[in-house]
């Protein structure tokens, strides 16, 4: 397991545990008492460490290299997934995946950003940064879901839409704008979940839903803490401060009424126990669909719009 800088105390305890186990094995001395002592210590320090993570620490967890990504979640929460490729126009964007699958017998259309687990995969997936064709592929699949009256599940995990020449020329801004607007008019239920990083337009480009949830150790904002820091303080050094200022954690977002709920992760993050994380995710999706499917399509659209139209705080003299 890879540990993050702030997880050092726990890493130390794990290393001590390994050492004692080794000694016990070699010397054939029964050290089970000290072993269970350390195991208890690990549990306790985990509990206290993860109880009050800072914004920046959540950002770090959201980017943990072992964190489950979209296709892994789809694999874990659905059966019979059929991946569908291409935007029927330019190409297939590897940073955006989608297709039909069944969650406990209910057919849904999955759409989501995809990151890679290895260096090669990361490049192949363009680090989860989609181009316009990715957003148009997502919209194509969502419209197909609408045609067959199947709900849509969007899994969001992106450091941003890709800033490149071809992307600009093919209308990155138009693609994102179109998705946002057309998602409001979808006649089928839409459930969106931030499963990792929710960076600005690249995230909200598949982020308009009847329900929008964040997993516990994710972030969602208009800019990354690093970029925010470099703009405000002209260096990436103040990313911790920027992360606090942006109020980008699930708890902050729920408190500000910008999301509908938080999905619990296992202690230490989704990567510690992906199965448990997936189970929690599945439960929330199933729950939401149970509420949304019986609703009248127009009523759902009106509520979806009203929810987002309410967002924003201002003064009126």
């Amino acid at each position: 397991m890879q540990f993050l800088d702030f997880e050092k105390p726990i890493q130390d305890l794990y290393e001590e545990l390994d050492r004692i186990r080794e000694v016990s094995k070699k010397s054939k001395v029964d050290l089970s008492a000290s072993i269970s002592d350390i195991e208890k210590k690990i549990e306790e320090s985990k509990k206290s460490l993860y109880k009050n993570l800072s914004g920046w620490q959540r950002v770090q967890l959201s980017r943990h290299p072992e964190r489950p990504y979209t296709l892994e979640y789809i694999e874990r929460i659905s059966e019979g997934f059929v991946e569908l490729f291409g935007d029927r126009n330019v190409k297939d964007d590897k940073a955006m995946v989608g297709g039909f699958g069944q969650i406990q017998g209910q057919t849904v259309m999955f759409v989501g950003h995809q990151k890679g687990n290895t260096t090669k995969q990361r490049q192949y997936r363009n680090f989860g940064m989609a181009n316009p064709e990715g957003y148009r592929k997502a919209l194509r699949l969502m419209k197909m879901a609408e045609k067959f009256n199947k709900p849509i599940v969007c899994l969001i995990d992106t450091p941003g839409a890709f800033p490149g020449i071809e992307g600009e020329e093919r209308g990155q801004a138009e693609a994102i704008a179109r998705n946002i607007q057309d998602m409001f008019l979808l006649t089928v239920p839409v459930v969106c979940v931030i499963i990792g990083e929710g960076a600005s337009g690249g995230a909200i480009g598949i982020g308009v839903g009847d329900r929008v949830f964040m997993m516990e150790n994710t972030w969602y904002s208009v800019i990354s803490p690093e970029s925010c820091s470099s703009i405000l303080w002209r260096s990436w050094e103040h990313k911790e401060r920027a992360a606090e200022a942006l109020k980008l954690t699930a708890k902050d977002m729920l408190g500000n009424g910008l999301i509908d709920g938080i999905i619990k992760e296992p202690l230490g993050g989704a990567h510690v126990n992906p199965e448990e994380a997936a189970k929690n995710l599945q439960k929330k999706i199933v729950e939401s669909l149970k509420e949304l499917i019986p609703m009248d399509a127009e009523e759902r659209i009106q509520e979806r719009m009203a929810k987002f139209v309410k967002m924003g705080v201002f003064n009126e003299a």
Binding site: Q181, S200, I223, A245, M305, G312
Partner: peptide, 23 residues
Amino acid sequence: GARMMEAAFSLMQMAKSSAKLAQ
């Protein structure tokens, strides 16, 4: 672009304005 000092509130204006234009 978006106003950083309003962070996610500012991001949501993209959705809000698009919803109204859809209306």
